[in-house]
Every structure is written in C-alpha cells, then in structure tokens.
C-alpha cells in the first residue's frame, strides 16, 4: 500500500512538475499558531508538510530554525504536540511527515514512535542524524507501521554509500543541496543538480532538495531537476519578521503561493 506521500510523487510526476514541501516545527510560533501556519501552507498550495520535532541540540540547523525550536521548546513542545500538529495537517488531506533528530525517537520508544506517526495519518519520518549503520531497529519499526523512512544525503556522500543510503529510503530521498546547515541562501548550490543526478543512478525513489531554497526563482530552478523542493527557514523568517501573527500568516501563504508557482515553472 502506498503512503499519501508516495501517491503525491506519482501525481506530480504525471503532472510533470515538482512537489512543494514546507517545514514548520511543532509548537511554533505557538501550538495553535502552528496549526494556522499549516492551514496557510495548504491555502498557499503546498503539496506536503514536514512537522519538525523541536530539539535542544539541532546540529543540522542554522540560526533561524534554532530560534524557532528554542521558542517551541520554551513553551513545552514535545511528542504530544508533534503528533497533534501532524494530525492537524493530515486531517486537512495533505501528506505529512515528521522531521526529527534521533534522540526524541529513542526516548519515546522506536516502535511506538513509528506507530504514532501512522496512527496520526503521517506518511513517514525524516531522520537527519540517523546513519544507516544505526538504523536496524528503526527499519524494522517503519516496516511494521508501513510508513516511509527518509534519510538525508549530502554532496559529500560518495556513490557507493549513496546507493546504500537510498536503499533505506522510501517516500523520497532528501538531498541536502550543499555542505552546511539549514537556512536561506542567496543562491542554491551548484552542487545540487550533480547530487540529484548521482542519486538517480542508484534509485527510482523520488528526490527532494532542501537547504537554501527561499524564492520562486530558486524553487523553479530546483524543480527543473528534482521531484520535490523543500522550504523551511524562509517560512520561519516570515513569521519571525512579522509584527503580528495575522500578518505573518499572510506572508507565509503568499510565499507558499509564490513557491507553488515556482515548482510548476521548472520544466
């Protein structure tokens, strides 16, 4: 059986475009605010949503997502809020996954976590710091709960290893466009097309590109060679920069709509 995420990539491939995937941490700017952001994503035309599990030591994240995670954590955001936000997204009919560092999964219980994703309608989990060598328990749990396991690969990942990592991926392969942490960049790394091409040699699974995408033009560029475009920090910046929640939500919806056009203009 396909997850909603897998179905989405089948659909966008048939429409000859890329999917727009938007990221928001649970509990940011508040738990209720997060639900409104999810609604704004959907209204703006986002195809799939990543719910971030805010973590105290996010080594893959730049200052923007760190700030959002800090705010969410200071309001007591934990597993309960993550699953609640996930359910909010999937209840709206949009495919959704959780992105989390490994320790919160281990603390929650590996099998229990995978099952909670499935129970809340989630399609899978992105694990940026879980290496395939440490993944045995997780691989069994995602198979049991019939959800996708999504790993992040980088430009430095060598071909032989790329094949092993993508073997563990379902739903999509998360291609980090550059060597670095999350955050907006003035241009998307020139290493990204090469990485995506290398990934495609080892797998038919969809490939989504993240790190540094923030504008319609950048989304259009990435959509030219990838199946999905992932945007996180740019949305969070809109919320951090806005004077109040209402104007932040308008800005999020507007950016989503711009990016949604971008992913349709790439080919």
């Amino acid at each position: 059986m396909s997850t909603p995420l897998e179905t989405l990539f089948t659909t966008v491939r048939s429409e000859n475009r890329a999917a727009l995937i938007a990221y928001i941490p649970a509990g940011f700017p508040t738990q209720e605010g997060c639900k409104k952001v999810i609604q704004a994503f959907v209204d703006g035309g986002v195809d799939a949503i990543e719910i971030g599990f805010p973590y105290s030591d996010p080594v893959m994240d730049g200052p923007t997502i760190q700030a959002a995670a800090d705010r969410a954590l200071s309001q007591g955001t934990g597993a309960k809020e993550v699953f609640e936000a996930l359910k909010h997204a999937t209840d709206l009919g949009v495919p959704a996954v959780v992105m989390t560092y490994w320790n919160p999964i281990e603390k929650y219980g590996v099998e229990k976590f995978a099952q909670a994703i499935s129970d809340n309608g989630g399609s899978g989990v992105i694990t940026p710091d879980l290496t395939i060598e440490e993944s045995a328990a997780w691989t069994a749990a995602v198979a049991q709960s019939e959800i996708n396991s999504i790993y992040v690969v980088a430009p430095s990942t060598k071909d032989a290893r790329l094949a092993s990592v993508t073997d563990h991926c379902s739903g999509f392969v998360y291609a980090a466009s550059l060597m670095g942490v999350t955050g907006t960049r003035t241009s998307v790394s020139s290493g990204a097309p090469d990485l995506v091409a290398r990934i495609r040699k080892s797998t038919d699974t969809a490939v989504a590109v993240g790190l540094g995408v923030s504008t319609r033009e950048q989304a259009k560029g990435v959509a030219g060679y990838a199946d999905g475009v992932i945007v996180g920090s740019a949305f969070i910046n809109k919320l951090l920069e806005s004077e109040d929640e209402a104007s932040g939500l308008i800005a999020v919806r507007e950016l989503a709509s711009q990016l949604a056009q971008g992913v349709r203009e790439g080919r």
Partner: peptide, 11 residues
Amino acid sequence: GRFVPEALIGA
C-alpha cells in the same frame, strides 16, 4: 556508534 548528518560520514 555514529549519529551524525550524512555530510560528515566521509570525513
């Protein structure tokens, strides 16, 4: 073990 971003595996 190793619980790190894939970007660091090569190094």
